[in-house]
Design a protein around this nucleic acid. Structure first.
Lengths: 233, 233
DNA sequence: ACTTGTCAAGCTGTCAGACAAGTTGACAGC
DNA sequence: GCTGTCAACTTGTCTGACAGCTTGACAAGT
């Protein structure tokens, strides 16, 4: 017989669970208002403190947002939880920016391949537009960086995989400074033009529904980016 | 001039942030005890309720664990936040098991390649041991499934990328039932032997420090797995 | 018709104080 | 050495209170 330490579930934990369940089963949509703390406390037969602590849990997990004087509204699923995870892991030294890049590469490669398979005509067009807009900003690093984010997210969106999108988006956010540094190291116009060439290849492969080519081009893109991030000095 | 809606930060949010900061800067390790709620309330000059709500936030994010009658201890970084994210995304219909598989594949492929580059001698050996242990359980699906999880996690550990490890571990947990179903569809002994062959190829490539071969073998493994998951009936 | 001022009702944020229940360590008794 | 008891400290929950914010209704003034 094996023994396992037992823990009574606290009231607020139970209520947090029930509230989450309530949101899902009654199909509450982002923006919808939850009952007030007083009412919930009465319904559950507990004090307001307990309900408040339950809501604090859900708010900390990004499931709801509590607005003072108004109430608690349901929040859409976004990448905030992922960002908290990555942030904390790095803070505590359980992860690094290099590790993030090692995750980001295969995800973006997959994103590129899926986009080539699933992109709508509109998505393909707007990706090509972004790439040509970037061609005009080779002299403006800041604008180029902004468009670069946009491009990668457009591709991720065209992959039509929301989990993948959130992952890429959150990892990208964490790496923002690293990417910028990498770009700055390639200040030379010829270097930026090389990036532009690869970007074009990716976009074209997606537009031509060629997953293999899209995958390869994105892989090249990341291998080259890695070089400039690692080149110290 | 652009206007932006402003929000006062609540006391508990401030305290949650400061507490997290305190944990990191004073280098508290998992298991270490935080000051008591009463003491913190006194130190911060606020009521105990506020401190409690702050701790509830951190507990919901898995940063600490509050034990009744004892105190709050620091928790190690694990994949609980990731699991909450995936769980919620799927509950709300913002994600699916297919999407999870599409994420899992590139991550495990990368994991396999990195493991081939970085595995220690001990890791290579224990991976090979697991594979040969699986060879003896071809008739026992349950045991085989348990060892399968172990193998993939051993490989992820050998990749020496903790973020990647947590991601793979959490995605795998979410897919547990799907994987089991996939295995059951391959009940035929010859089918399981095919899996075993590929597993062996992966392990051998890792042992021989051949990232390319490891990558390819893992990709094949997932492509074949996908077939049996998708084959309805 | 449209803005403005005011007010009441309801909500969240915070406080103080209380008691129950769990944990721990010290210590006496066997 | 083991056990039972007790005191000190901790978290869990409750109650009642008040400040500050949000919203909607409504009257007053243009």
């Amino acid at each position: 017989m094996t023994l396992t330490s037992l823990t009574r579930e606290t009231l607020s934990d139970q209520i947090a669970r029930q509230l989450m369940n309530f949101i899902v089963t009654t199909n509450l949509q982002p923006g919808d208002l939850l009952p007030s703390e007083t009412k919930l406390a009465a319904d559950f037969g507990v004090s307001r403190s307990v309900v408040r602590e339950a809501m604090r849990s859900l708010a900390a997990q990004g499931a709801i947002e509590v607005i003072s004087g108004k109430g608690a509204i349901v929040r859409p699923v976004d990448d905030s939880l992922l960002r908290i995870f990555f942030q904390r892991a790095i803070e505590v030294g359980q992860g690094s920016h290099v590790e993030l890049m090692e995750i980001r590469k295969p995800l973006e490669v997959q994103s590129s391949a899926l986009a080539a398979q699933r992109r709508t005509a509109e998505e393909a067009e707007s990706i090509l537009e972004t790439v040509s807009a970037m061609a005009n900003e080779l002299g403006n690093l800041e604008k180029y960086a902004v468009l670069d984010v946009e491009l990668h997210l457009q591709i991720a969106a065209a992959a039509h995989n929301q989990l993948l999108y959130h992952l890429i988006s959150s990892v990208r956010t964490m790496l923002h400074n690293v990417v910028l540094t990498g770009l700055q190291r390639r200040k030379g116009r010829d270097q930026l033009e090389r990036i532009q060439t690869v970007h074009t290849a990716i976009a074209r492969a997606i537009e031509q529904s060629d997953p293999g080519a899209a995958r390869d081009a994105m892989a090249v893109h990341f291998d080259e980016a890695m070089q400039f991030i690692n080149s110290t000095g």
